[in-house]
Write a protein that binds this DNA or RNA. Structure first.
Ligand SMILES: [Mn+2]
Ligand SMILES: [Mn+2]
Ligand SMILES: [Zn+2]
Ligand SMILES: [Zn+2]
Lengths: 136, 136
DNA sequence: ATTCTTCTTTAGAATAATTATAAAAAACTC
DNA sequence: GAGTTTTTTATAATTATTCTAAAGAAGAAT
């Protein structure tokens, strides 16, 4: 299956019609080997570079959030004025290079199993994420 | 030593003159038994409740960041439009109740030791933080 | 293919958290 | 107290994000 067909499937699954703007967004997001950590602004700039056609910022926001809602993108909790997303939606952890403002994947085996020995009545665990801040 | 003296010491250590506005901020921040997780807006509202005198939002921002810089406050990485701070500046982890937008401390023994088996050349680990998201 | 309906794009406005400005007030020094 | 430095505060500016509404594109029905 060509990647364009995959993108269309992802879009349909997210209740989005496959428009050319959204396909372009998919190209930048999903047509890559490695995981991709980005802010909306990163993504917006890469789209401007890669494609002739313009895509509006609003469309980028809308599409990213639809993918996020559907589970095709993950939001990474870090202290930043901008929101960071990740194309790697599996459970995994991160280094965060504070100086360069860059996220790096940590595999689960790089961290080891984490057992939470405390529980809150009426609540259950949704996710466990480790953030390792790096300095020089 | 009275707590006011402690506040003045904290302020002086942070290169801040002990003004009445800043002492009021300290009262709300540090005059408590348990750890305190807050946003600037939380803090601002509590100050309005607790004290007669008004403190401007700008002063709250400035003072909080001076304490943060000095290490008297910690910033907690979570996905939120607002920045969360913590009066517990020791290394520790958190539950985050997504629905109620509330942080809860996890002691280190509730999580167990975390060994990071990967390193990035030229970088060293500054902190390791676990965020456990909770749902109903 | 034409028509009709629903969704999408987009520019621009609105919102909201945070930071910057600069003049008046307070704190500190001598 | 006089002089100097820092602080407060109202207000403006900035920035990320969301909203709006009109024009355009996609899909369905004929
Ligand atoms: Mn990742
Ligand atoms: Mn805490
Ligand atoms: Zn989202
Ligand atoms: Zn800070």
């Amino acid at each position: 299956m060509t990647s364009k067909q995959e993108f269309i499937k992802k879009l349909r699954n997210s209740n989005l019609r496959p428009t050319k703007q959204r396909i372009n967004i998919c190209e930048v997001l999903f047509n890559r080997d490695k995981t991709f950590h980005f802010t909306i602004n990163d993504l917006f700039n890469l789209i401007k570079d890669k494609t002739e056609e313009k895509v509006s910022l609003a469309t980028v926001y809308n599409t990213v959030h639809a993918f996020h809602k559907k589970g095709y993108l993950k939001e990474i909790p870090i202290n930043s004025n901008q929101t960071y997303f990740d194309t790697n939606v599996t459970d995994h952890h991160h280094f965060f290079d504070v100086k360069e403002e860059r996220l790096i994947d940590l595999k689960n085996e790089d961290v080891g199993p984490i057992e939470i020995q405390k529980s809150i009545p009426g609540k259950k665990i949704k996710s466990v994420e480790v953030l390792v801040k790096l300095e020089d």
